[in-house]
Write a protein that binds this DNA or RNA. Structure first.
Lengths: 218, 218
DNA sequence: GCGTGTGAAACAGTTCACAGCA
DNA sequence: TGCTGTGAACTGTTTCACACGC
């Protein structure tokens, strides 16, 4: 299957498979069936097989999948086998917390720069290791091109998010994770994923209301 | 349409409509067409109408929708017209940043408690206003029942996330937003929304790789 | 027996196209 | 004319069911 034909939901699950496989590998498991892998992630066995089939066949009938092999294969598919550089713009509370978030590093992402236009924030240390300080926005473009950065995280207020996105795109970034509660306009060759925390909580809240109302009946 | 039959994507967009409508209302706009509303959010006009039609008909043919009325109606549908109490568990860096995130308050959520089991964190101030301190997990159940809390945010490491979820559910919480990179098992009447930041970034990264590869051809 | 890979069927969501109304 | 509301068509995803291999 051509890589651009892989459904988005499949890509999301691939990431979950990898995490689960790594946990199983640590636990000393050598093979796993689609049923087992699915059960751990609340998915059907058919779903797991369909997802993996997008990238060729590497299961053994009657046995299942070899955990180590499959993990390595998925890692390659996702590109998680080589480090991918990331920059983060906006060193407010959320931005600073994300800069220190270990989860990105565990997935093979390398945060190479944190930027902000507020002079009070520039120079502040935002890494657990102490080797990352907030830099001026003036240094953004150079960093992106020198370190070949393709991914950017936007953690600025909604009012400046579009301007920041424009600068990142102009510098050469091709994928954005946007925490600002506003839609971004970007060229077609740039991917944006909006992470709108309030909207997500709103969704849970609505669902809770629905289930509560549904449960009231006789 | 029965409220439990509303598609999840529609609920998410409803939240976006509301934000856009509020912006338009502030801008002094009194009516808006599905085309306009859609354009602001990168949606088709048909999509907007279908979404709104789930909740009855309140558009005027030839005119469009009255901004103020529609905003009020959507607010009611989402339950955003009355405050909804929320507790947050895990006052690490991410948890502390989220506790201070204004976006939740703007949507009508009220964070009434922040909890952690680490004694070093208990008592620390985690609010912009200074009226919210980290409390012991021992106080969780009482707070949830006294303040009638239905929503919880989990910001603890993956290793303790399930245990925290169990305690929240036992206390009476019906909806969870989970920032820990692990799936949670909960009863059927409880909703969980996983916000897996690394997975989300992975998805963007994969997409970037695909588009880059696709663009190389002749 | 068990378990993969895969076409067929079912389902969900989006887009189209148009009737009907201001 | 402009715009809504909505059935019909379409697209994409999930589930089912089974042939084939260990």
């Amino acid at each position: 299957m051509r890589p651009d034909a892989v459904p988005a939901p499949t890509v999301r699950r691939l990431s979950l498979y990898l995490r689960q496989l790594e946990a199983m590998q640590e636990g000393g498991k050598s093979t796993v069936s689609s049923r087992e892998l699915g059960a751990a992630l609340d998915l059907t066995d058919a779903q797991v097989r369909k997802d993996l089939a997008c990238f060729g066949q590497f299961g053994q009938p009657g046995i299942g999948y070899r955990v180590a092999d499959l993990a390595a294969r998925v890692r390659t598919i996702l590109g998680a086998d080589k480090p991918r550089n990331v920059v983060l713009v906006g060193a407010g509370r959320l931005g600073s917390a994300l800069a220190r978030y270990e989860g990105f590093g565990e997935k093979g992402f390398r945060l190479v720069g944190v930027f902000d236009e507020d002079p009070d924030r520039i120079g502040r240390d935002v890494s657990p290791g102490g080797d990352l300080v907030v830099r001026s926005m003036d240094d953004l473009a150079a960093m992106v091109s020198e370190q070949n950065v393709r991914l950017g995280i936007i953690c600025v207020p909604a009012s400046t998010a579009q301007a920041v996105a424009d600068r990142l795109v102009a510098a050469g970034v091709k994928g954005l994770m946007n925490f600002a509660p506003t839609p971004l306009k970007v060229p077609a060759d740039v991917t944006v994923s909006g992470v709108d925390l309030a909207v997500q909580l709103e969704q849970v809240s609505f669902q809770v209301g629905v289930l509560a109302a549904g449960g009231e009946g006789p």
